[in-house]
Design a protein around this nucleic acid. Structure first.
Lengths: 119, 119
DNA sequence: TCTTCATATGTATTATTCTTCATATAAATT
DNA sequence: AATTTATATGAAGAATAATACATATGAAGA
């Protein structure tokens, strides 16, 4: 299992069994629609249709994509009459994007234009 | 673009253009082979063949999967004769897994067994 | 309860990503 | 230079995931 401080200190980086969590977590976030959704929800909580309009996507697609985000608690939901208002888990996402921002600052000189699997 | 502190404070969460970086970053990490690779490399830096043995995978597969990790600077490489020794960027990965661990502790009561797209 | 509005779900198609096998490159050794 | 060892690359087939369309569920109000 993933461990912290790697070989240098031998301490736990990621607890036993968290490998699986990581995979789900990252898979969840490795999708442009879901990232765009989070982006929108960061600005303000919205209903599914508001999101769909705002993203220029179909309602069913937005619903489909919200589902895994909800299951991983990356977004929250609350009912308001017929509507369901989604909002982000900014506790986790704030920290997460901070890490990526730091990484990008240091390691992505091209500002995200590095080719992942192109060539 | 993704912004920090969401709607509540209006500050920048993620700088303009980082959406793309996030996508590459997460895509890169949303793969069991690559996560297992990082796991191994956290314990100690290794050559490609050592990794392949250690993972019980083909050399070419390991190579293929190391490529994007290298491109995103999630692993480093150094030459040693014919061998290429890979090691993790523990600066980024340490912080990253810390975030996920915190998230899991709080939001994944089932310990990663929450179904992502199953039902 | 019937209708409307809001969202979720099922499924088939399409698109993307992984893996494997074959082969190429490249460094060191003879 | 030829051989061996280590790694990388190309490309095709296999596996996964995403999308669109149709439809189901479910709440609220007439």
């Amino acid at each position: 299992m993933l461990r912290t401080h790697a070989h240098t200190k031998g301490g736990m980086l990621v607890k036993k069994g968290l490998s699986e969590t990581c995979y789900r977590f990252f898979t969840n976030l490795s999708n442009p629609t879901r990232l765009a959704t989070l982006e929108k929800l960061m600005k303000k909580p919205m209903s599914v249709n508001e999101l769909a309009d705002s993203l220029g996507q179909e309602q069913s697609m937005v619903s489909h994509n919200l589902k895994p985000l909800l299951q991983c608690n990356l977004v929250y939901i609350k009912r308001e009459g017929k509507k369901r208002i989604y909002s982000v888990n900014s506790e986790t996402l704030g920290e997460l994007f901070k890490v990526i921002e730091n990484h990008a600052k240091k390691f992505c000189p091209t500002g995200g234009k590095c080719i992942l699997r192109g060539d």
